[in-house]
Amino acid sequence: MKKIISSKNAPAAIGPYSQAIEINGILFVSGQIPIDPETGKLVDGGISEQTTRVFENIGAILEQAGYTFSDVVKSTCMLASISDFKAMNEVYSSYYTENQPSRAAFAVKDLPLGALIEIDTIAIKQ
C-alpha cells in the first residue's frame, strides 16, 4: 500500500526520511530545502533563488510520483526570516497560478543546513 518515491532530480534525503510517500492516492512530500541535487549543496543566492530551487525539487518529486503542481492541496512554508515572506510569495505564485493549494506560512527559529526556506507538500491525485 505505502509506496516510497525516489527521484534523482531532487536531492537525496539528508536524514532518515523518504523524499515522498504515496498511499491511497495521497502523496506526502517531505519538507524540501534548496539543495541542488547535482552538488548536494544549498544553491547560491537569496530567498528568490532558494524558493525557486525548492520548487524545482518539489516538481521533480511530484513528477516521479506521477503528480503535478495542480494536484497539490496543502503547502507548509517555513522561513528563516518573516521578512522573506513577500519575496517568497512572488516565486510561490509563479508555480501555483490557479486553484492554489491551502497553505500555512511562518518563520521558524532555524532550518536544516542554514536554509532560508523549507516547504512540505500534500498532493491528492485528480
Binding site: G25, S70, D71, V73, K74, S75, N89, Y92, S93, Y96, N99, Q100, P101, S102, R103, I124, K125, Q126
Partner: peptide
C-alpha cells in the same frame, strides 16, 4: 483515481494571495 480538487473561496478573499482559504479533495 478521480478525486476532484475543489477550491473553497470566500466572498472577501483577497485576490492577490497565492493560496486558497481551503481545498477539498474527496
Amino acid at each position: 483515481g478521480k478525486l476532484p480538487k475543489h477550491v473553497i473561496t470566500l466572498e472577501n478573499t483577497p485576490a492577490k494571495r497565492p493560496y486558497s482559504p481551503a481545498v477539498e479533495a474527496g
